[in-house]
Design a binder for these strands. Structure first.
Lengths: 231, 231
DNA sequence: AGTAGTTTTTAGTCATGGCTAAATTGTAAA
DNA sequence: TTTACAATTTAGCCATGACTAAAAACTACT
């Protein structure tokens, strides 16, 4: 497997290494302080294991580690994380568009594939999709050079009642949640009409394809929308 | 990752385990006695490592191991091997047809992907290709239930001069070899005319798309053909 | 500042699966 | 049958990266 970061990294990285880097990237991007417990929670290993791995990544110059401090990525570490994320999101879109894999299943599939595709395959996939900018959840696909586009939109929970919106991003990869949204007729770029916005973080009333649904506030907060008129 | 053999196997298999099983299957299919040295040569690990792994696979009831004897697959072991082989060949064809990956590159790519695709993805790929029978090298794709079709044809080295043939299989996965054949205009189902068959295992003279080429006997032996008239 | 409680790190265990080197076994020729 | 050579297996080493349990270090409250 040829990686475009192979030139700067001594030893080849395992899927595991890549998962840690990706996790750190995602947690950082969420604006969280990537403490050991946050990281170990996210990746599903014990805190001791996380410390261990972080130290190793630090020796490889992929992360910056100072005991008892939040970890962060070095420029190289970030490049690796973004390459994996690019693989992941390209794969999600590819699986969805080319093989009709439902949007609530593409995440777990891509989770394994992202570590084993070559540069050539990555390129072929990107080309076949016409160099897309976002995956089926609206998450931006990093470019080969590591730029991450800014996604427009704001949470549906902050939208105004009585207006039409378009769904541009779902901030969740959970199968159940996505399957539920799918059942409501919601998927990327679908239009919806916000009927009512209950106060005090109450549920939201939306109309999708002529049918009305109540959405928990928690769910509405995960739906990023733009006014329906907007491109 | 859901495997259809998961019900019969206690511990999940690593890529490595799968590679051993696949290797044993392929060597058996070649009609070779799968001795320890043959196996270790093929997989590229030391004989000691092979013995070790074979013992483990034997404990898992995937192979039959008797010291100093050729290894063989149990029914379950064979099922696993065939599932991986099915993944491999479906992937090769998919990469070639859907993403235009050249036929001399699909093998190494599939080598990594074969271990991480789910049943659902395998099915989606098979469906999108119309349930194909052979991969881009003419190797038969095992069915889900583990049947391996018989491929017709005989080596070009045993064909008669002055007749037209169609290439139905290439018994090699080597990138260089395949790239070379590709340059001659040879790929699956291409027609060729056998001009001359030099005696004493000498080279063979073929015409492909109106151009004449000499082929080493060694190479001609790897090309399986049928009379051009045959379906 | 002292102390309780939480977080992080350290220390040490275990399984995996490669390796080398040495012992064993099997085979074939004298 | 003995002996030599090749193939195989055993024994033991090493790195990896998970784990638990215990120690250490931070934080926050009194």
């Amino acid at each position: 497997m040829t990686k475009n970061y192979s030139s700067e990294i001594a030893s080849p990285l395992s899927s595991n290494h890549e998962d840690y880097l990706k996790a750190i990237y995602i947690l950082e991007a969420r604006g969280e302080q990537v403490t050991n417990s946050v990281l170990s929670d996210y990746i599903g290993f014990t805190p001791a294991s996380a410390t261990n791995m972080v130290k190793k990544l630090s020796q490889m110059d992929l992360v910056i580690y100072r005991p008892h401090q939040a970890v962060s990525l070095t420029p190289t570490g970030r490049r690796v994380a973004l390459e994996i994320l690019r693989h992941h999101r390209l794969l999600e879109l590819f699986l969805h568009k080319t093989l009709d894999i439902p949007w609530d299943s593409v995440h777990e599939e891509a989770e394994r594939l992202e570590h084993v595709i070559s540069e050539a395959l990555e390129d072929a996939i990107a080309a076949s999709l016409g160099y897309p900018k976002v995956d089926p959840h609206g998450d931006p696909i990093p470019t080969k050079t590591g730029e991450v586009g800014h996604t427009p939109g704001h949470p549906l929970s902050q939208a105004k009642a009585g207006r039409a919106y378009r769904l541009v991003r779902v901030l969740s990869q959970e199968k159940e949640r996505l399957a539920y949204l799918g059942r409501l007729g919601l998927s990327l770029n679908v239009e919806l009409f916000l009927r009512e916005q209950a106060p005090f973080d109450g549920p939201v009333l939306v109309e999708v394809a002529g049918v009305e649904h109540a959405l928990a506030a928690e769910m509405a907060a995960l739906l990023q929308v733009v006014p329906a008129s907007a491109k």
